[in-house]
């Protein structure tokens, strides 16, 4: 009995630790990601007035003065598979409507925005920019 309780307590403790550790790689949805980006955008700018798929599309297809745009690898039609600009490796479709695995892990989303914004713009993207792009991608069928 005593051992059983102890084991239960240990399990509960492990669960609690898991709950604390998990969020870094926790499952997410487009809606949850948008809520987080919206909170960030509001904190960064008082004039925040929502995300726009149209603005996101323009951002996605622009080279921003450099060699690459998002579309260089993800194509102008992100429901289709893309191709890495340097290695030629196939990239699975980016739009969640075509690839349900996209935008489901917050840490993965953060990692790729960090890398790709740096490659395309030479800086981090703002929450407004990320939210617009996500709005655009989520609108595609």
């Amino acid at each position: 009995m005593g051992t059983g309780k102890l084991a239960l307590a240990a399990l509960a403790a492990a669960g609690a630790i898991g709950a604390v550790v998990l969020p870094a790689s926790a499952a997410a949805s487009v809606d949850e990601l948008q809520k987080r980006l919206e909170a960030e955008a509001r904190a960064g700018s008082a004039g925040f007035s929502g995300f726009s798929a149209q603005r996101g599309e323009r951002f996605f297809k622009s080279a921003h003065g450099g060699d690459w745009s998002c579309a260089t690898c993800h194509t102008e039609n992100p429901v289709a598979p893309g191709k890495h600009a340097k290695t030629g490796k196939t990239i699975a479709p980016l739009a969640p409507g075509a690839n349900p695995q996209r935008f489901t892990v917050a840490a993965t989303v953060d990692k790729w925005f960090r890398r790709n914004c740096n490659d395309v713009l030479g800086r981090a993207c703002t929450a407004q920019e990320k939210g617009d792009v996500l709005q655009y991608l989520a609108s595609l069928r």
Binding site: K86, A107, K111, N118
Partner: peptide, 12 residues
């Protein structure tokens, strides 16, 4: 890794 042959491949 943040300058990985011309691309940012940084990890946590």
């Amino acid at each position: 890794l943040d300058r990985h042959f011309g691309a940012d491949a940084s990890l946590d």
